[in-house]
């Protein structure tokens, strides 16, 4: 698969800070991947997101070295507005990242900045809203929407610019479990049906693990693990050392594994867990 994002030995220090926020970081993302990036607070998730969309080094000052290449363009040499057409960005605070008063205007904002003619905007708005499943909210005021709906508007606003990759920085941190799941389902759909490459920076490991194809763990600005989520969840020591959330279903089956009762892949969701338990009970002749 074609490489879309290439981070090469990237190091970044905020202002005069002696501690690097990102330390000699290397990461490759290929087209079509759904990559989850996790790590404790301060591990460098937000800094990495800002480095990918060019806010670092264009907007956020600091000392840096190394390279970030997105779709063949070096971010340090490409203006943010150009990168905006390749990387769609969604942030944590649904309130502060929205600029308009109603849904349609919000989704149109990026297109207006690109000076697209109106005839081209209308179908793109329709398409973006349909992709995230909120076509019926098109003419609603942003004030009336729930947090989850607002985040989907933010995703639609990014999608309308037809980016090659979507970078989301803790998009669900201010959402309730239902809102979180809604956003995750939308991301899965975008990845599977529309073959959009997604980089999701997220602390909620249990919520994210069932959806992603690859999990990257950050610690003190470095990549310390990079594997499919099921493999990483097997490494209890790593989870504990990084202070990561240990999804309860996976944790339970790890206990069974240790007791020698279970040898298959770790289930990630309650549904998968139920199925595996049923299989186990049948095998052991419990039911």
């Amino acid at each position: 698969m074609e490489t879309l994002i290439e981070v090469q030995n990237f190091t970044f220090y905020y202002g005069e800070s002696p501690v690097p926020a990102l330390a000699d970081l290397n990461l490759t993302v290929r087209r079509g991947e759904f990559v989850g990036i996790t790590g404790p607070t301060g591990a460098g998730k937000t800094t990495l997101a800002l480095a990918l969309n060019g806010v670092i080094p264009h907007f956020q000052g600091g000392r840096w070295s190394g390279r970030v290449v997105v779709a063949g363009m070096d971010t340090a040499e490409t203006p943010c507005s150009r990168l905006a057409r390749i990387i769609g960005s969604v942030f944590q605070d649904p309130e502060a990242q929205l600029v308009a008063t109603d849904v349609e205007e919000e989704v149109a904002f990026g297109l207006e900045n690109q000076a697209l003619p109106r005839e081209e905007m209308l179908p793109r708005i329709e398409e973006a809203l349909t992709m995230v499943g909120i076509r019926d909210l098109r003419h609603r005021s942003l004030k009336e929407l729930s947090g989850g709906q607002k985040q989907r508007v933010a995703i639609a606003a990014a999608l309308a610019m037809r980016p090659a990759v979507l970078v989301l920085d803790e998009p669900t941190s201010e959402l309730d479990p239902q809102g979180t799941q809604d956003v995750m389902e939308v991301l899965r759909l975008l990845n599977r049906e529309h073959h959009l490459t997604i980089v999701l920076l997220e602390q909620k490991l249990a919520a994210m693990a069932p959806y992603i194809s690859r999990l990257v763990c950050l610690h003190e600005g470095r990549v310390v693990a990079d594997a499919p989520p099921r493999e990483i969840l097997r490494r209890e020591k790593l989870l504990r050392e990084l202070g990561l959330e240990d999804p309860p279903v996976a944790a339970f089956f790890r206990q069974l594994q240790r007791a020698g009762l279970y040898s298959r892949d770790l289930p990630l969701t309650v549904e998968e867990g139920r199925e595996e338990l049923g299989r186990l009970f049948a095998k052991e002749g419990i039911l």
């Binding site: 905006a84 502060a96 990242q97 207006e112």
Partner: peptide, 26 residues
């Protein structure tokens, strides 16, 4: 201040101020 920073970053990543612009509702 934190909010306005987020807003500024959000504007930056949506190509705000990159040149002439059009309007959805002329």
């Amino acid at each position: 201040i934190r909010r306005s920073r987020t807003l500024a970053i959000s504007l930056e990543t949506r190509g705000f101020g990159s040149g002439p612009r059009t309007h959805l509702r002329p």
